[in-house]
């Protein structure tokens, strides 16, 4: 179980690599599709190409622990085997894993700032193709049950998004083809 008992400072299956200056400050962690990362180092966590997938960032301003997930599908019941092997593929298994990993590093639920991006869909879609909406609804349900609020979000539409969390400052930025803005 990710982060349940561990005391290390970084929980990630994502590719972590040092950025330009190769110092800890400029380190960047890339979260791939169906992946998550949590750290208490002053890194930037980034994920690209969010379509109907959802990216969730969490950040505790007091202990400066931050994390991000890029999940693909709403419900791990679709494939218990895949949900076990790759929990971050699904909202139902990945989102709890993300929070648990942050708690293990000292983050506290009440302090966590949660931001959400993605959930795009194709044009002319009346439901069958709307994985983005189902992904979003499942997240709302999970967070509501656990009394966690979403601070801000940028969801829906037909665009691709890049999501960046700066763990040093808690700043979250959304990039799309029209430019970037703070979330």
């Amino acid at each position: 179980m990710i982060g349940a008992t561990d005391t290390q400072s970084e929980v990630s299956t994502a590719s972590a690599r040092a950025g330009g200056g190769a110092s800890a400050k400029s380190a960047q962690i890339t979260v791939d599709i169906a992946d998550l990362a949590v750290t208490n180092k002053p890194s930037k966590i980034i994920t690209h190409s969010l379509g109907s997938c959802i990216g969730v960032t969490i950040w505790d301003p007091e202990v400066r622990v931050g994390g991000m997930i890029h999940y693909m599908l709403p419900d791990g019941a679709l494939s218990p085997e895949k949900a076990k092997a790759k929990p971050a593929m699904f909202a139902t298994t990945g989102v709890p894993a993300l929070f648990r990993a942050a708690f293990a590093m000292g983050a506290v639920k009440k302090r966590l700032i949660v931001k959400v991006a993605g959930g795009s869909t194709l044009l002319d879609d009346n439901g069958t193709f709307n994985i983005g909406k189902r992904n979003y609804v499942m997240l709302r349900k999970l967070l509501w049950k656990n009394e966690i609020l979403i601070k801000s979000e940028d969801v829906g539409g037909a665009i691709s998004r890049t999501l960046v969390l700066d763990v040093a400052t808690g700043r979250v930025v959304i990039r799309n083809r029209n430019g970037e803005r703070e979330l």
């Binding site: 599709i33 190409s49 379509g51 109907s52 997938c53 693909m72 869909t121 665009i159 691709s160 083809r177």
Partner: peptide
């Protein structure tokens, strides 16, 4: 939908 190599055209297809 799965966001594989999305470009500026994004998901702007019917």
């Amino acid at each position: 939908l799965m966001g594989i190599s999305l470009g500026t055209d994004g998901l702007c297809y019917r």
